[in-house]
């Protein structure tokens, strides 16, 4: 529902860009929460990388704007 907010939509491309600058695959980054705290917006992610033979441990991080 957060995507109905124009402020969230405005900063979303930056959140996506941040994932790319980390070298992560967008499809492996699960957006779990969008939190608005005062003027800032935080995107919580779980990064799950899996290769053909191995499941790598989950990594959690937050992109704040």
């Amino acid at each position: 529902m957060a995507f109905f907010s124009s402020s969230v939509r405005n900063v979303s491309p930056r959140a996506v860009r941040e994932i790319r600058t980390r070298g992560l695959w967008l499809v492996n980054a699960d957006l779990t929460e969008i939190r608005r705290d005062g003027g800032s917006i935080g995107f919580s992610w779980i990064y799950r990388y899996r290769s053909r033979t191995r499941v790598f441990p989950d990594r959690r991080f937050v992109s704040s704007f």
Binding site: R20, T21, R22, G23, W25, S51, R52, R54
Partner: peptide, 18 residues
Amino acid sequence: HHVRWYLMPEVLVGNDMD
């Protein structure tokens, strides 16, 4: 994504990385 399937190490996409 096929690169992830074929290669054994973890692959990062470096195009936008510093």
